Simulated assay, not measured.
Amino acid sequence: MMTDELRKILDFFNTIGINWKFQSLQKAGFLPGVQIENGCLRIAPEQLANPGDLLHEAGHIAIMPTASRHFLQDDVRISAGQGAAEEMAAIAWSWAALMALQLPPEFLFHPDGYKGSSAAYITAFCEQGGFGHPLLSWYGLCLPAGQADGYPKMQCWLRA
């Protein structure tokens, strides 16, 4: 089902250059209703349990260098060697996207996600500045947090 939030996210993806397409998903991925294939989000709206998951998966795509983005498949750890640092950067990116879209923290950090740590993540980002954003600065996506126009404001959304 196409909700206002889903439409808002897809419009955002179109604006920043995240490739996506609606497609039935025959096999289950990490998150219901969304998979990454060749650096593109495949979305099955009827299977999508939490539209905020799209922001997280888009974060994995956005932090990959342009030349390597097409290597991303459903399990980004295996397909692109993304580890804990990239996971934190994808979470920080998704928070910045959430702020740009003016959606509530629970939209991204919903109770069904983040291995039971959603409440802790909300606290970390709302009260303590979050984590992972130094990598976004290092990638050239934003200025450091605490600077004028610094994180969570992004200078660009996709890594070159």
Rank of each mutant, 00 (worst) to 15 (best):
A49F: 08
A49T: 12
N50C: 11
N50R: 14
N50S: 11
P51R: 04
G52Q: 04
D53M: 07
D53L: 09
D53F: 11
L54V: 06
L55T: 01
L55P: 02
L55K: 00
E57M: 00
E57F: 00
E57W: 00
A58K: 00
A58P: 06
A58T: 08
G59A: 05
G59F: 03
I61L: 09
I61R: 00
I61G: 03
A62Q: 03
A62E: 03
I63F: 06
P65F: 11
P65E: 13
P65Q: 13
T66H: 14
T66Y: 15
A67V: 10
A67E: 15
S68V: 10
R69V: 09
R69Y: 10
H70A: 14
F71T: 14
L72M: 07
L72A: 05
L72H: 07
Q73E: 12
Q73N: 13
Q73K: 14
D75S: 12
V76H: 02
V76P: 05
R77K: 15
I78E: 10
S79Q: 05
S79L: 06
S79I: 04
S79T: 07
A80D: 10
A80C: 11
A80K: 02
G81E: 06
G81Y: 08
G81T: 07
Q82W: 06
Q82K: 02
Q82P: 10
G83K: 05
A84Q: 15
A84C: 14
A85M: 12
A85F: 13
E86M: 15
E86S: 12
E86K: 07
E86L: 12
E87T: 09
E87D: 11
E87S: 11
M88T: 13
M88Y: 12
M88F: 13
A89P: 06
A89G: 09
A90C: 07
A90Q: 05
A90T: 04
A90G: 06
A90E: 04
I91F: 04
I91G: 02
I91N: 05
A92M: 11
S94M: 02
S94N: 04
S94V: 02
W95T: 00
W95I: 01
W95D: 01
A96F: 05
A96L: 09
A97H: 01
L98I: 08
L101R: 06
L101G: 05
Q102E: 15
L103W: 08
P104V: 09
P104C: 05
P104I: 09
P104R: 10
P104S: 08
P105T: 01
P105Y: 00
P105K: 01
P105F: 03
P105L: 01
E106M: 05
F107H: 01
F107G: 00
L108Q: 04
L108G: 00
L108F: 03
L108T: 00
F109R: 03
F109E: 01
H110E: 10
H110L: 02
D112M: 10
D112S: 14
G113P: 07
G113S: 10
G113M: 09
Y114H: 03
Y114N: 07
Y114I: 07
Y114G: 01
K115E: 15
K115N: 15
G116E: 12
S117N: 14
S117P: 02
S118P: 08
A119R: 10
A119C: 08
A119Q: 13
